[in-house]
Design a protein around this nucleic acid. Structure first.
Lengths: 326, 326
DNA sequence: CTGAAAGCGCTTACAG
DNA sequence: CTGAAAGCGCTTACAG
């Protein structure tokens, strides 16, 4: 240890943490030893002793484009704040994400490592001894959370399709334990209902937000004799997959099929054709969650505990009137 | 603690860790208490006591598309391995990334939290008490590392431009402390030299890989009276920025200007026009680094300590013969 | 101004 | 089969 170089560990600790009451010469001595050994105090040990680390945690179970956007927002909100970020991701040892991953990771970190945590799309209720903010929480969750106006966004995109003249509109849903997913489905149903179009259960497919889950579903929808003239996927990853499936099947978009997504990830604007979607600003979801957690940790938060960010319809080239109606 | 529910902490620990020599009835008792309290052993405390955590670390100083791809590769390599991942990112408290961030983060984690670490684009030499693998290391680094064939890739892309007929080819460099960056510049110079084209220092701009850094540089290059007919940016993020700057200036790509990048991030293929670039498979960089670290940690690695992955020229629509030569 | 001691939450020999 | 004690690397009262 650095203590061999200088004197007691107490003193080293004082120097490292800039406490008062150490003679200038001792400080210099310790500093040089630290320099020489490249010593850095262990995050683990100090976090165990103090009850505070100035480190925030984020737990997630995958790294998709969505996650990357969330992270950018989180990091920007934390910039220069003096709070670092630790992201915990597991190796999925037991396959298909054993239920309760978020709770397990959270408990391991919240022990003493982090002062608070952001949980990305948790699938159930959560408890923790330190503050938690959920991004796109589970349906029955009561923890502080940040979500987009999923219901309104979905309604808007489906109304857009209806206005174009579509009547048979397929829907590829996301993970049903998330409010985000449920709200989008309700928005879809609501828009149909308002337009007096009966919902056809055969046109509703159950995906899980991962691009891979959408391929067989989109294919099944599109190979039906009475295939839909438009498909609304509950997120962009699945919508982009639908675009590819349509291409494989020789269907032109938006000529033969209109496709719309949700999220507005960067790839959406760059797709061919560019994807009509709902901008829920995933970046802002991350940004606001981090801002809220930061204040919560400092005991300074006085806003609402459930934040809903506006969602905005973004019309691009992947949607157009159906052939029949042209 | 859970111990209030059952009996001694020793016994609880034995149950949690599945050690032998606990009566079935005690196990049941402790299990139920654990269940009731939602107890999870603290990662911090147990890591301090054992010297092993089955957690790997990754330190980075930003989240760009590049980082997201690296992470996907790392997670795939770790899938089902029983090794979790902790990513540490700092809030850049002192601005513009105080030199030595990688060493500081590493020391804090390597204390006892992680069994080994991946460091993304470190800017200097690194030392650690646990195994380390660098992705795109600093120029003078000797730690185990994974890099792409940067020199060959850059040579190939510049030769491609020369074959198209370009003679004035601009270059936007990356962070000069990284081998990746230096090698790409050398590849650029080499290709020019081989073709007997004198390098013009005025056409070489110093970027830092971030998209923002490239905007003023690209603009300066393109506003020169003797502007280049092609620009090769040291990574895709900067090449995509160059595409936008060209658009702003009313220059058509590839009509008025050819643009090429390096990396082949997902956005490259989706850009308008699609970007000619070098596929260095950032995903594989992450994948191989994780595979190597995993073996190193287990003491099973017997391959070379410096891995170079092949790079491949990907010609898309952003490069074409210059107008004059058409 | 400096150090010895206690304790953060665990795990691991060591006794019983 | 079970528990008291020591110790992982720190920090923080408490003495000197």
């Amino acid at each position: 240890m650095a203590r061999l170089a200088g004197v007691s560990t107490t003193t080293v600790s004082r120097v490292v943490n800039g406490r008062y009451g150490v003679s200038a010469s001792t400080i210099a001595q310790v500093r040089s030893a630290i320099e020489r050994l490249g010593y850095e105090s262990s995050l683990v040990a100090s976090s165990l002793r103090r009850r505070k680390t100035d480190v925030l945690g984020l737990v997630t179970h995958s790294f998709q484009s969505y996650t990357a956007e969330v992270l950018k927002g989180v990091m920007d909100a934390l910039r220069q704040s003096g709070l670092d970020l630790i992201i915990y991701a597991d190796s999925d040892l037991y396959g298909t994400y054993a239920e309760g991953w978020e709770q397990r990771h959270l408990s391991r970190l919240a022990g003493t490592l982090t002062d608070g945590c952001i949980v990305v799309t948790p699938s159930g209720e959560i408890r923790s001894s330190t503050p938690v903010v959920a991004i796109d929480p589970a349906t029955d969750s009561t923890v502080p959370s940040v979500t987009a106006a999923n219901f309104e966004g979905a309604t808007a995109v489906v109304e857009h399709l209806i206005e174009l003249g579509h009547r048979r509109i397929g829907f590829i849903a996301g993970r049903s334990e998330l409010v985000a997913s449920r709200s989008r489905e309700e928005g879809y149903l609501q828009a149909l209902a308002r337009a007096g179009i009966p919902a056809d259960p055969a046109l509703i497919a159950k995906g899980d937000f991962h691009p891979g889950s959408a391929a067989p579903l989109a294919r099944a929808l599109l190979e039906r004799p009475d295939r839909p003239t438009a498909i609304f996927a509950a997120n962009d990853d699945m919508a982009l997959t639908t675009l590819e499936v349509a291409k494989d099947l020789g269907l032109s978009v938006p000529g033969d099929l209109s496709v719309a997504g949700f999220d507005d990830i960067p790839e959406a604007a760059l797709a061919e054709p560019a994807l009509t979607t709902v901008d829920q600003s995933v970046y802002r979801l991350g940004y606001e969650a981090a801002r809220m957690l930061k204040a919560l940790v400092r005991g300074e938060w006085d806003g609402p505990h459930q934040i809903v960010l506006p969602a905005r319809l973004v019309v691009r080239r992947s949607t157009a009137p159906p052939r029949a109606a042209m």
